[in-house]
Design a protein around this nucleic acid. Sequence first.
DNA 1: AGATAATTTGACCGATTGGTAAACATTACA
DNA 2: TGTAATGTTTACCAATCGGTCAAATTATCT
Lengths: 214, 214
Amino acid sequence: MAIPRAAKTQRRTRIQEEKEEIILEAALDVFSVNGFRGTTIDQIAEVAGMSKPNLLYYFRTKEAMHRALIDRVLFTWLEPLRAFDANGNPESEIRSYIRRKLEMARDFPRESRLFANEMLQGAPHVEDELRGPLKALVDEKAEVIRAWATAGKITKCDPYHLIFSIWSTTQHYADFDVQVRAVLGQEHAGEGRFEDAARYLEQLFVDGLRIRHN
Amino acid sequence: MAIPRAAKTQRRTRIQEEKEEIILEAALDVFSVNGFRGTTIDQIAEVAGMSKPNLLYYFRTKEAMHRALIDRVLFTWLEPLRAFDANGNPESEIRSYIRRKLEMARDFPRESRLFANEMLQGAPHVEDELRGPLKALVDEKAEVIRAWATAGKITKCDPYHLIFSIWSTTQHYADFDVQVRAVLGQEHAGEGRFEDAARYLEQLFVDGLRIRHN
DNA sequence: AGATAATTTGACCGATTGGTAAACATTACA
DNA sequence: TGTAATGTTTACCAATCGGTCAAATTATCT
C-alpha cells in the first residue's frame, strides 16, 4: 500500500527527497516558461524522466507541485531584500542590493520567471503571501529608506517606488532575456551584459539618489 | 458557401470588422492573463459571447488569433519610442517618454501583459520582430542618446540599458500590478499610484542622468 | 420577393488533459 | 532471508482540447 508524502512515517525517505528534488527541478523548468495553465503534468514528467503516475505519487495534483515550488522559491527570492541593512551605509547597501538582485536574475532566471508568470495571472496562488509577509518586509525596509532621507543621507523619494524600480530593472534581465538579447544583438549579448547592466544601474540609482559619498 | 477572411471579396464586410474586433478584444483578455498555451479557444469564445466555430470562421486557428493580436498591438506599443525625438530637448524628451510609457501601462495593461507573457515564453511567435524592426528602432534611438552624451548634454551611460530601465520600470506597473497593489496596501493603491510613480521615476532618471536644466 | 453569398451553430472527431486503479517491482528492516 | 512498506508502471477514465462539417440562419443585392 502506497502512502505518499510521508503521511504515516513522518520521516522522509532518501528516495522521497531525491525524487521530489528532481520533480521540482523539472516543474520549475516548465512552469517558469508556460505558466500554470499552460503547463501539463506530462511535460514535467518527461523533463523529470519519470512516468506521470510516478509524479502524482509524490505530488497528488498539479496544484500541489506548483504550491511546493512557490513555497520553496519564495524564501530564497526575498533573501537580498532581507539582507538590506538599516545600520549599513546607504550607498553601499543600495549598491549591493542591486548587485545581488542582478546576480539572482543571472543565476536563477527560472525562479524569476516563475514569479513573473504568477504575477501576470493575478497571483491567484500567492496573493496572501504578497499582502502578508512580503508587504511587511517591504514596509520595514521602506521605513529604513525614509529614515535615511529624513536624516539627509539620501534624496527624498518614495521608498516603495524606489524598491519597485530596483525589482523591475534587475528582474527585467531574467524575465525579458530574449528581448534583451535580441536588441543587444550578437556582439553585445554575451554574459558581459550583466556587468554592463550592473555598471549602468549602480550609476543610475546612486547618482540619481544623490547619495552622499563619505 | 462560406469563404472566411476576405478570400474572394477583397473588401471586408461591416460584420467582419465588428466581429473581428470583438474577438480580438476577448482574445486580449484571455491571452494576456493565461499566455498562449494556457488559453483555450472556448475561453475566448465565452468572453466574446459567440460560439467556438464562429470564432474559427474568422480566425482559422488559435495561432491566427494570437498572431493578429500581436501584430495589431505591436505597432501601437512602440509608438512612444518612435515619438522619441532626436531634435528635442534631452530632459523633456526623456520625461515625456517616461510619462507616455507610464500612461500606456495604466491605460493598456492587457497589451503590456500580452507581451510580457510572450517574452517569458521565449518569444516563440515574435522573435523575428524583436531582432528586426525592434532592434532597428532601438539602435536608432540609442544613437541619439549617445550623441547627447557625447555633446555633454547628458551623463555618459549605456543607452541600451537606459532604454531597458525605462521599459522595465514603467511596464512593471502593468505586469506586476497585483504585487504593486498588495505592497502599497489599501490606502496607497488607488489610481494615485501612477502619479506617484511618475514623480519618482522622473526624479530618478532626470537627476540620475544629470541632465542640464537650461 | 427571390437568389446568392455571408454568417452562425449543434453535433461531432481524434488527441490531449488531469487524475485513478491495480498489478508489479524494489527497498528497508527484522 | 522473508515480509511488509515503499516505489513504479501499464492501462485506463471522463473531461477538455483544437478543429471540422454540414445544416440552418441571416444579410445583401438585383
